[in-house]
Simulated assay, not measured.
Amino acid sequence: MFELRSANARGISNLEWLYSQHTFSFGDYQDTDQMGFSDLLVINEDRVQPARGFAPHSHDNMEIFSYVLEGALEHRDSMGSTSIIRPGDVQIMSAGTGITHSEHNASAYEPVHFLQIWIVPDQPGMKPRYQQHHFDTAKKRGSLHLIISPHGEHQSLSIHQDVRVFAGLFDGDEQFTLQLPENRYAYVHVARGLLELNNHPMGAGDGMRVRGERELHFDHGQAAEVLVFDLRPKALPYEK
């Protein structure tokens, strides 16, 4: 079964320095029908103005990753981690027992456009950690490349949850089929461009809840970039 979450139906936060679109309930945007999916709690599409950003703030017991689409994002945290995250980079922060961090646009002239995604961990009270890795465009071209997994398989980043995240780029005749294990859910988020998922057209910002399917087929891409989440078969985060 395929259930579309339209980009146009997302919640919006529009501040002087930040334009954010919320796939699921977040902050002042609350929708009882959009409280996450499986262990996936937040997908925020953020655009931050030059030399602006999120002041230091704290999190705990959450797996948080950033996926930059355009520009450069500067990260600093209470573990002493500092980095610049650019397109092709994936950053994941396991907040665990507690971490304070800030995220700023590293440019004084150009905006930064990125996805921030929260996944509920499989247990509380883990030691905080930070990871970052660059994934080559060639590995994602016309394919789905593993970027996050429970045990850091195939040089992916590791996460404290039974979740696997894939990234892909599709254009023209490129097509790919992902085989899902039995009794799994999936969530597909189109970061930009257009494509078809099992003959369902999707555009930038669209999401798709997937239940009871064993194959996800991607084709008819038009400058498309997509993230795919292989998830446990449960309705909502925090559900036992």
Results as ranks from 00 to 15, higher is better:
29 Y>A: 05
72 A>H: 11
29 Y>Q: 03
61 N>A: 08
71 G>N: 06
54 F>W: 00
89 D>L: 05
79 M>A: 13
82 T>E: 14
21 Q>V: 11
61 N>I: 02
82 T>R: 14
25 S>C: 12
53 G>H: 05
26 F>I: 05
69 L>C: 06
42 V>G: 03
66 S>A: 14
49 Q>L: 13
87 P>S: 14
38 S>I: 03
24 F>I: 01
39 D>K: 03
37 F>V: 05
89 D>R: 01
57 H>V: 05
25 S>E: 11
63 E>W: 02
44 N>A: 11
84 I>L: 14
33 D>C: 09
31 D>A: 09
16 E>M: 11
39 D>Q: 13
52 R>V: 00
15 L>H: 15
58 S>D: 09
37 F>P: 07
64 I>C: 06
53 G>K: 02
68 V>Y: 06
17 W>Y: 14
63 E>C: 05
27 G>W: 12
76 R>L: 01
52 R>N: 12
71 G>D: 07
47 R>Y: 05
76 R>G: 00
45 E>I: 01
81 S>Y: 11
25 S>Y: 12
88 G>Q: 08
63 E>H: 04
43 I>A: 00
43 I>K: 00
79 M>F: 08
89 D>G: 03
71 G>S: 10
27 G>E: 10
18 L>Q: 10
88 G>R: 05
28 D>T: 13
20 S>A: 15
76 R>F: 00
51 A>E: 11
29 Y>W: 15
24 F>A: 02
36 G>Q: 07
53 G>W: 03
87 P>C: 12
73 L>N: 12
68 V>F: 05
18 L>H: 12
49 Q>N: 09
18 L>I: 07
86 R>T: 15
87 P>K: 13
66 S>W: 09
34 Q>R: 15
19 Y>Q: 13
63 E>Y: 04
51 A>K: 08
50 P>A: 04
73 L>M: 15
84 I>V: 15
36 G>W: 03
84 I>C: 13
29 Y>S: 10
46 D>I: 00
81 S>R: 09
30 Q>M: 11
60 D>C: 10
57 H>T: 09
91 Q>H: 12
74 E>Y: 10
82 T>G: 07
23 T>L: 07
85 I>Y: 06
64 I>Q: 08
